[in-house]
Nucleic acid binder design. Structure first.
Length: 956
RNA sequence: GCGGGAGUCGCCCAGCCUGGUCAAAGGCGUAGGGCUUAGGACCCUAUAUCUUAGGAUUUCGUGGGUUCAAAUCCCACCUCCCGCACCA
């Protein structure tokens, strides 16, 4: 049977939409508020994006069937800069991006024309993504939709950022950015030629030495080596500039003078001084006032740092070699200089630079091996080195930690400042100019480094449910190492900082507590309130219960009624019960989400749960535009149907694993669903007559499944749940079919109908459309999406039927096994069940001992002998060993059941049930005897091997 | 170096938290059979090794340990992936 997926899906989506099934308002039921990170609309969704949303939708639909009032909303994140860059590139007519839009995303030509305006790009893909979400059958309340640049949302963000500022969470400081000197604008990846991210090395420092009335600045990555400086280096071949920098006069290379103009300093060049003139003079160390000679070195590049360098010959291979070169020339000053070791590192002697230069056979300061030597030594000293007594207060510190302390100490005494550099220079702006580092002195930061704030976040994490739970340690780590984070930028779409209109709230910072806005947005969308009504006092009262309704009403000009209604809506739905997101957002969004919530809201509104999922691979490879293996979600839906795509995404991996999407699994799922659909149309709801053994068994098994699947879904182990619904059920039904066919029964339609109804109900959160179709074909009334999630009831489990059926299966298995090994064609099969009461007694005694967890043969034997009832057991150690083994390989559950149902008539059950199935399986009659039967047929004396639940078998 | 994660029977991938139901699920592949005009789909059987009585042996990166019992717990090691740090 081929299924027209799109037709079925469209039909049911229409039904849902007409009955407004997913529009959620507060009511008397308990609620669940489920949210997913909203998308950034600069491209259509592909299958990978579908994963997070699909998982959340299953979650939402599951809770809805469990009787919760579920709110599952969606918004669109316009904030940010990528569309700006895209628009520029499109305007410039770049082939690569235009080809992508045309050939991969199939954007119509007339729409591409409008894309020179960034917002049009966002608008276009917004609609595209939304359509995809609808087609996937996501149960979203679209009345609450918004984008992050609509006025109402902006009011909310203004309130959020103001509140954070007033709570002292926002601080101002300096921050380096990549900058185009021509455009006078910060540059990010999409502003540069070749899409290079300008990487800024913020760990480069400038240290100031006194040089008469001047400052002799050097740059270094290793401020701790200040204690080992023996001299300074200047390049005699270049001419340096005298530059006034704020209140000081620095001597730096021309290149450096140009760079520091962007450091928000007063910079003015007032004269030249040649490198030759510097050589031979002395400068003064900022740490101990010692006089350090300035020596000539040609390896010093004017473009690096200040064009001046400090020399640490004990630990810097280049410095060591340059010094040796001078000594070889009998340089007067150099000859008096000896390296000062300050770092002790295992594996190196007192002078590591010397050692490594000799080891590598470095010839002179132009030798390229010096790079390697430097790299190796620096890393080693950083990771393993310890500062020695020459470092004063820092004696004994590990370099890793000492470095920061020394840096802070120097900085405090104004001997050091930051000197950020472009790590991957040269980077060129799209306009052609070479980018520089600009230090913005007035950048705004969220002070995530604050210990007290971290503590609140840790509290929240402690009480939160995190799925899967093993990712919790990662969150703990992230909170530990988080520090100040810039929360504003100078370009892009977004909301302006209310107190400083030069800045726009940065995109990660305007998407951390917005879930609260979902509870209000429908009132803005339907015109009940306008953005102007959303005043600070309004938000304070509604979201924080601060101030009073009269104040809120007076500033917002809203009626108290409306305000109270909105407040009720917020307090009904908040907190967020489950936040779904991708793994890549653990380090940023999800952590900020928690940090901002704890900073702003009362504890009762802190998030309850975070669900993290891995990404999606395509046929085992990462999806990427360049590999051409991106399948837009809507294309996939059109070609294969939404439900098969949903299931393929869910079934390919557990939550945190990367899911591998491939077409085979889609086809497999389609076939599976088609078969199930067909079966559902065949089954008729018929009255259920008297239950036979196998009926009781399959109904009990169904209860087990319900319990397992429900638990799996609750823990978001959806792959497992789906697997159980589609496949494990099948295994049990397969056995059931065997049994009823063997008995030639025709009266099981009602039972199968009941079981499959349960199955379809549980399938419906996963594959909502086709499940509705199945539900209808089953003849069940109403919508399956509105039906009740099957409820597990322990009373419906018939322990006896499960164990008897297990016995039957085991017996059949045993017979097959014997037949397989002996390769005989059976003419007669005889079964002997145990009837020895001592064996039974001992069996039960062992069972009771083993259920307690004891498995030791010795202990079991002792307990048996100790009990007068079973003391005879010592005469049958063989039997006991075998029984222990039998029980070993049985589940705790079954053991428990056996223990509970005392007497069970093995012979009766086997003789009535084994004949039909045995005949069908093996083609011969099966006779069942009890060991003690007088008319027993037992030519080989097999009967004495019979044990409880393990009959002896004779095959002829 | 720090932090996080992974290594399972041809492949992919479950199981590990909470030890015994584990020669280890499922999918794919492969082989044989059924159904079919054919193909597909579907169904059955097999798929570590040995075995003419339901059994035995060796397996879950490597090596140890704990335990009556280890894929699962502990220790050490190896390999791989990711994030961060590091490079006058």
């Amino acid at each position: 049977m081929t299924i027209n997926w799109n037709e079925i899906e469209t039909k049911w989506r229409k039904t849902w939409a007409e009955s407004k099934d997913f529009e959620t308002n507060p009511n008397e039921k308990p609620k669940k508020f489920i949210t997913v990170a909203y998308p950034y609309p600069n491209s259509p969704q592909h299958i990978g994006h579908g994963r997070t949303y699909t998982l959340a939708d299953v979650h939402a639909r599951f809770y809805r069937m469990q009787g919760y009032n579920v709110l599952f909303p969606m918004g669109f994140h316009y904030t940010g800069t990528p569309v700006l860059g895209m628009a520029k590139r499109i305007e410039a007519g770049e082939k690569e991006i235009l080809d992508g839009l045309r050939n991969i995303y199939h954007v119509p030509e007339e729409d591409i024309k409008t894309f020179v305006e960034p917002i049009k790009i966002a608008d276009y893909f917004h609609e595209e993504i939304k359509s995809g979400m609808i087609e996937m059958g996501y149960s979203i309340d679209w009345r609450r939709e918004f984008t992050t640049i609509v006025p109402g949302y902006q009011k909310f963000i203004e309130w959020q950022i103001t509140t954070l500022k007033e709570k002292g969470r926002i601080i101002q400081g300096s921050h380096p950015v990549g900058w185009c000197p021509k455009d006078q604008n910060p540059v990010s990846q999409h502003d540069t030629m070749g899409d290079v991210e300008p990487k800024i090395d913020d760990k480069n420092f400038l240290v100031k030495f006194a040089f008469g009335e001047f400052v002799f600045p050097v740059t270094t990555l290793r401020p701790e080596t200040i204690f080992g400086v023996t001299n300074l280096w200047a390049n005699p071949k270049i001419t340096y500039k005298k530059v006034t920098v704020d209140n000081e006069t620095w001597i730096v290379s021309e290149e450096c003078a140009h760079k520091i103009e962007f450091f928000e300093k007063e910079v003015k060049v007032i004269g030249d001084i040649s490198g030759k003139d510097l050589v031979g003079k002395t400068a003064v160390s900022p740490t101990n006032g010692s006089e350090l000679p300035i020596l000539p070195a040609e390896f010093v590049e004017p473009g690096m740092g200040t064009g001046l360098v400090m020399s640490v010959p004990a630990h810097a291979p280049k410095d060591y070699q340059a010094l040796m070169d001078l000594k070889a020339k009998n340089d007067n000053l150099a000859s008096k200089i000896e390296p000062i070791p300050i770092i002790v590192t295992e594996g190196y002697d007192e002078y590591p630079a010397k050692q490594i230069c000799e080891k590598l056979g470095v010839s002179d300061q132009t030798d390229s091996k010096l790079e390697e030597a430097t790299k190796e030594l620096y890393l080693k000293e950083f990771t393993d080195g310890k500062l020695n007594e020459k470092c004063g207060d820092f004696n004994g510190e590990k370099v890793q930690f000492g470095r920061d302390k020394i840096r802070a100490w120097l900085q405090e005494n104004k001997h050091l400042e930051k000197f950020p550099v472009l790590e991957n220079a040269p980077v060129h702006c799209r306009c052609g100019a070479e980018c520089v580092v600009k230090v913005l002195n007035n950048q705004w930061f969220l002070n995530y480094g604050d210990e007290e704030w971290k503590k609140l976040a840790r509290n929240c994490f402690d009480e939160m449910n995190i799925l899967p739970s093993n990712i919790k340690t990662e969150f703990v780590e992230v909170i530990d190492w988080l520090h100040e984070r810039a929360c504003a930028r100078q370009q892009g779409l977004g909301t302006k900082l209310p107190w400083d209109h030069d800045w726009i709230v940065e995109s990660l910072s305007d998407s951390v507590i917005y879930m609260a806005y979902y509870t209000l947005s429908r009132f803005v969308n339907d015109g009940t309130v306008t953005p102007e009504n959303l005043t600070r006092e309004f938000f304070d009262y509604v979201l924080l219960d601060k101030g009073d309704v009269k104040l809120a009403a007076s500033t917002s000009k809203l009626s108290e009624d409306v305000i109270e209604t909105m407040k009720k809506e917020f307090t009904y739905f908040y907190p967020v019960d489950s936040r779904h997101s991708g793994r890549d957002l653990v380090q940023n969004h999800l952590s900020f989400f928690v940090l901002n919530h704890v900073a702003i809201f009362d504890k009762k509104f802190w998030p309850q749960e975070i669900v993290v999922n891995g990404s999606v691979m395509m046929d085992g490879a990462k999806m990427s535009k360049s590999m051409g293996n991106i399948i837009p979600l809507r294309t996939a839906i059109r070609d294969h149907g939404a439900d098969p795509i949903r299931l393929a995404i869910i079934s390919s991996a557990e939550l945190l694993q990367d899911a591998d999407f491939n077409m085979e699994s889609v086809y497999g799922i389609q076939n599976k669903l088609a078969a199930l659909l067909e079966e559902c149309s065949r089954l008729k709801n018929a009255p259920i007559g008297e239950l036979q053994a196998e009926d009781k068994w399959i109904l009990s098994k169904t209860q087990n499944k319900i319990s397992q699947i429900t638990e799996a879904v609750e823990k978001m182990r959806l792959r497992e749940a789906l697997h159980d619904i589609l496949f494990t059920f099948e295994t049990d039904l397969g056995w059931y079919q065997k049994r009823i066919q063997a008995k030639e029964r025709k009266d099981v339609s009602g039972i199968l109908h009941q079981i499959n109804s349960v199955r379809v109900a549980m399938l419906s959160p996963f594959a909502p459309h086709i499940s509705e179709e199945m539900w209808k074909n089953l003849g069940n009334g109403g919508l399956v999406s509105k039906s009740i999630w099957p409820e597990f009831s322990k009373e419906k489990i018939d322990a006896t039927s499960i164990q008897s059926e297990e016995l039957l299966k085991a017996t059949i298995d045993d017979i097959s096994n014997i037949l397989k090994v002996t390769k005989i064609t059976p003419k007669k099969i005889v079964i002997y069940v145990n009837s020895d009461s001592m064996k039974s007694k001992v069996y039960h005694k062992i069972l009771s001992i083993m259920v307690g967890g004891q498995n030791n043969m010795g202990v079991v034997m002792k307990e048996l002998i100790a009990d007068p009832e079973t003391t005879e057991a010592k005469k049958m150690p063989d039997y006991i060993q075998k029984v222990i083994k039998d029980l070993h390989s049985e589940s705790e559950e079954i053991k428990q059941m056996k223990l509970e149902s005392e007497s069970f008539d093995e012979k009766g059950f086997l003789s009535s049930e084994l004949s039909s199935i045995g005949k069908k399986e093996f083609g011969v009659e099966i006779q069942v005897y009890s060991e003690s039967d007088s008319d027993i047929y037992d030519p080989k004396g097999k009967s004495r091997h019979a044990r409880p639940f393990k009959p002896a078998i004779l095959i002829e």
